[in-house]
Design a protein around this nucleic acid. Structure first.
Length: 489
RNA sequence: GUGGCUAUAGCUCAGUUGGUUAGAGCAUCGGUUUGUGGUACCGGGGGUCGUGGGUUCAAGUCCCAUUAGCCACCCCA
């Protein structure tokens, strides 16, 4: 039966395809090549992408590490909706920021609600904290999540309109130790996953110190204003702090002598910041003070930090303590980062936001710290640096069957094996043994079970050791026990 | 949102100054082997050369527009 079907299919499958192309080709000349506009190619929206099966191993790897580290540090999982009220984001992230002003996916629903696709997690998590009365739980509340975020930005490598982050929030405690613990966790997560990173850190103080600093900065820049680059001049009134980030050389030169925000911190903020740094020293986390680090979202206060893929000069040059060397470990790692285009890429960051919860209508003075790590970028770096990741768990055994009766038995046997905890796979749509062996080999199964007419009569089954190429015949009743023993490791 | 580069098979790419039926490797399917894989050999399928228009006797090749990707700006993850 099976052999008859195969030859029948072949000619049928072959002919139609050429016909179609021929028609299309001849149709071109008469001029009517585009009668159907429906031929328009459907393609990915800009900035969107498919994560194909071949790439899933990286996502499994990263998500696994995410889950592990989050549990270890005592975080509870929370999932918040992709869509929220537009106002939630406008109020927290702040109007005037690029994220809100030009990068939000916002729209009106059929019920005429103004909503937006989440461009980040913090606002939603803070909203959930308040809405579900989590202030009545033991403080602080540690929450983590991961998922898709949306920003209508212009795509580039490692930058998409739909992207994913791992996200952590610690709400309800002002302790500097928590800032440090959070940073340590992010650092350790990235190290675990195989990435050499540097922590950049700064303190933004309170809204008040920020105000003072902004004034001081403007006073300093005013005489040089005409020499600043164009965008910096625009920012002068709108968002002067961001001038610090300018990549323009001339602007950077001018900034050399600019006042630093650290000098404007009030006693409490300074103490907090010093304390965070002490904790970091204690935990051996290498960091670099970065007085120009200003995060793009309005709600940050006090500690602000960022994880950057370690650029070569930092690793090779002024040794940032032993811990840095530990994470880089092999010299090959350094070399790879050096020659890689991803060196210096920002993988994540975060900071304190002591005023956000209150601003959203939560209890006054509810402090919090948060952090987010970009998953696409982590995976990009992992792939770029060729970090070796554990191969996907493959099937232990492949069940091959030959002939109709064996196939029926195989269906049942498959289930018995699965219930016995054996990772088994098969493909009952295949008839030829060679096809099935080939599949088994591709799936790197340790054993292939061969069940054919002969075995059905004897009530036996063949166990083939794929690596050794040897095989033996055993009774079907003994199969499960034999396999369990053989796979025990 | 601004500027630059790029676009040929599922993937990586080749394609001479515009000139016959657009090629390779890998992958895929089939055969050598109707009950023995990962090797080898043979063969097949798969391209409206991103899309639309223009120049030309003739366009994958030149021009314009458009879409997408990449790079820089910007922003950040």
């Amino acid at each position: 039966m099976a052999t008859k079907k195969v030859p029948a299919k072949k000619p049928a499958a072959k002919k139609p395809a050429p016909k179609v192309t021929k028609l299309a080709a001849t149709g071109e000349k008469p001029k009517a090549a585009k009668p159907k506009g429906s031929k328009k190619k459907l393609q990915l929206l800009r900035g969107m992408r498919d994560i194909l099966p071949q790439e899933q191993m990286y996502w499994d790897y990263v998500r696994g590490a995410l889950d592990q580290v989050s549990r270890a540090y005592g975080y509870s999982r929370i999932d918040v909706p992709v869509v929220e009220e537009l106002q939630l984001f406008k109020r927290t992230i702040g109007e005037g920021t690029d994220v809100v002003d030009k990068e939000m996916y916002e729209f009106e629903t059929k019920g005429e609600d103004q909503v937006a696709l989440r461009p980040e997690f913090t606002a939603g998590v803070a909203r959930a904290f308040i809405e579900h009365g989590m202030m009545n739980q033991p403080q602080p509340v540690k929450l983590w999540t991961d998922g898709a975020l949306f920003r209508y930005d212009r795509p580039q490598a490692g930058r998409y309109r739909q992207f994913h982050q791992g996200n952590w929030e610690i709400i309800g405690s002002p302790q500097a130790a928590l800032d440090a613990e959070l940073i340590a966790m992010g650092y350790n997560f990235l190290s675990d996953v195989g990435l050499p990173v540097t922590v950049l850190i700064n303190s933004l103080g309170t809204p008040d110190t920020r105000k003072q600093y902004v004034n001081a900065l403007k006073d300093y820049l005013k005489p040089h204003r005409k020499q600043l680059d164009e965008t910096s001049q625009e920012r002068f009134n709108k968002n002067p702090l961001r001038i610090l980030d300018s990549k323009d050389e001339r602007t950077q030169e001018i900034l050399e002598g600019a006042p630093q925000i650290v000098d404007f911190l009030d006693d409490e903020s300074r103490e907090h910041f010093m304390s965070v740094l002490e904790y970091l020293d204690e935990s051996g986390i290498p960091y670099r003070l970065e007085s120009r680090l200003v995060r793009g979202l309005d709600y940050y206060s006090h500690t602000a930090f960022e994880f950057v893929l370690t650029p070569p000069e930092v690793v090779a040059g002024e040794a940032t303590e032993d811990a840095a060397a530990d994470t880089v470990d092999a010299e090959t790692g350094e070399a790879k980062v050096a020659e890689s285009s991803v060196a210096g890429m920002a993988l994540g960051g975060g900071g304190r936001y002591n005023y956000l919860v209150e601003q959203l209508g939560g209890p006054a003075g509810t402090p919090a710290v948060g952090m987010a790590i970009g998953l696409e970028r982590v995976i990009l770096a992992i792939r770029e640096l060729k970090v070796e990741i554990a191969p996907e768990p493959t099937a232990d055994v492949f069940l091959a069957q030959i002939g109709e009766t064996a196939r029926k038995r195989a269906l049942k046997l498959f289930e018995e094996l699965r219930k016995a905890g054996i990772a088994v796979m098969s493909n009952i749509s295949k008839n030829r043994l060679s096809d099935q062996l080939s599949l088994a080999s591709k799936a790197s199964a340790k054993y292939t079970l061969i069940l054919g007419q002969k075995e059905m009569i004897d009530n036996t089954i063949i166990i083939r050791d794929m690596a050794a190429g040897s095989q033996e015949t055993i009774d079907q009743e003994k199969l499960v026990a034999t396999l369990q023993k053989a796979l025990k490791k």
